[in-house]
């Protein structure tokens, strides 16, 4: 591929990417200011309910202090520029109520690797398995075995991941006690590059990962199967068959490769949505990722942390799309021609 052309294409995509981030964050900003109800008042009410504050009414001076601390003081225009400046240029999301004194950024950075590790890996494993099995199921679409697998997949794909996780948790953690119930690693080991820690992480990650994989694999099986069945009806496949090519080669190079293209796009979208998907699973397993952080932030009414996680979740969708745009020309010659002439 022509390097200069690709560079120009990449820069164009990057510009679009940055522009969309700006647009999306602006919308998110407006959205947060539009939510009815005053977060400070709500916060105070909560404190009172829990008996932390003796004051009967919201103290204006104290409220203003908190407003300043979480960055919602001043006019809306001031707020907007401060917000954009902080978020976009300094990756700064303000202070946290959850852990006073800790910037939200640090909370996010601590949680993010766990979410990416658990969710990213599970989504990826589910995709690889699903595409391969779905491809074979479509290839052998008239065999009873393939039909059985399809029916099972239809049923499994209807189970919400959270419920699958509940079932696994009950069976393998509570009843059989093969796997731990919560956290990302045992409290007794020191995080770092040592065997105990690594084994612990794997043991703690297995159940949540399994829940995600079981459900997502069935979805990938069904979608890949549909794609393969459509490809089997294509002229180019009949023609390739008439060339007397080995069946294995036909499957990998003609059927699977063509089915792979739309599935790579779908994978990118899935990966973009991992923050969305992480929320529930992580709360169930008390897995210290963004999902658990968000749940804690919700109970504490931690405005900045909630806002930051929303922004991160949007950012991850946009980033996945951007990366897909960069990869697509390499794997699909049609995109290459279309986008770079």
């Amino acid at each position: 591929m022509d390097r200069r052309k690709f560079l120009r294409y990449g820069l164009r995509r990057l510009a679009v990417y940055l522009l969309t981030i700006w647009g999306a964050f602006t919308i998110a900003f407006v959205f947060f200011r539009l939510i009815p109800g005053d977060p400070i008042e709500l916060y105070y009410r909560e404190l009172q309910a829990e008996g932390f504050s003796g004051e009967s009414a919201v103290n204006d001076a104290a409220a203003e202090t908190i407003r300043e601390r979480i960055g919602i003081d001043g006019t809306i225009i001031e707020q907007y520029f401060r917000f954009m400046g902080n978020v976009i240029f300094r990756a700064e999301f303000g202070g946290s109520i959850l852990a006073v004194g800790t910037p939200v950024r640090d909370l996010i950075l601590r949680a993010l690797p766990w979410t990416i590790g658990l969710l990213g890996l599970s989504v990826l494993i589910g995709w690889v398995l699903g595409v391969i099995v779905g491809g074979l199921v479509g290839w052998a679409r008239n065999s009873p075995f393939a039909n059985g697998l399809t029916t099972i997949s239809i049923a499994l794909s209807q189970v919400p991941q959270y419920i699958a996780a509940l079932a696994l948790l009950y069976l393998f953690a509570f009843t059989l006690a093969w796997f731990p119930v919560r956290n990302a690693y045992p409290g007794t080991v020191i995080p770092g590059f040592n065997l105990d820690f690594i084994v612990g992480v794997i043991r703690h990650g297995t159940l949540p990962a399994l829940a995600i994989i079981i459900v997502s694999v069935s979805g990938w099986i069904l979608s890949t199967r549909s794609l393969v069945v459509l490809i089997l009806g294509e002229d180019y496949l009949q023609y390739a068959q008439s060339k007397g090519l080995p069946r294995g080669y036909l499957f990998t190079n003609y059927v699977l490769r063509n089915a792979l293209l739309p599935q790579i796009t779908a994978l990118a979208i899935s990966l973009g949505f991992i923050v969305n998907g992480a929320l529930l699973i992580e709360t169930l397993f008390s897995y210290p990722g963004l999902g658990l952080l968000l749940q804690r932030a919700v109970t504490q009414l931690d405005y900045n942390t909630i806002q930051a996680i929303v922004l991160i979740s949007i950012l991850s969708v946009l980033t996945a799309n951007f990366l897909l745009d960069l990869v697509l020309p390499f794997i699909d010659p049609r995109v290459r021609t279309q986008e770079m002439g």
Partner: peptide, 17 residues
């Protein structure tokens, strides 16, 4: 369509009285 709905819904539901 590309908005991750759950975080946004959670944010709204948190702050709406």
């Amino acid at each position: 369509l590309v908005i991750p709905e759950l975080p946004l819904l959670i944010a709204m539901a948190t702050f709406i009285p």
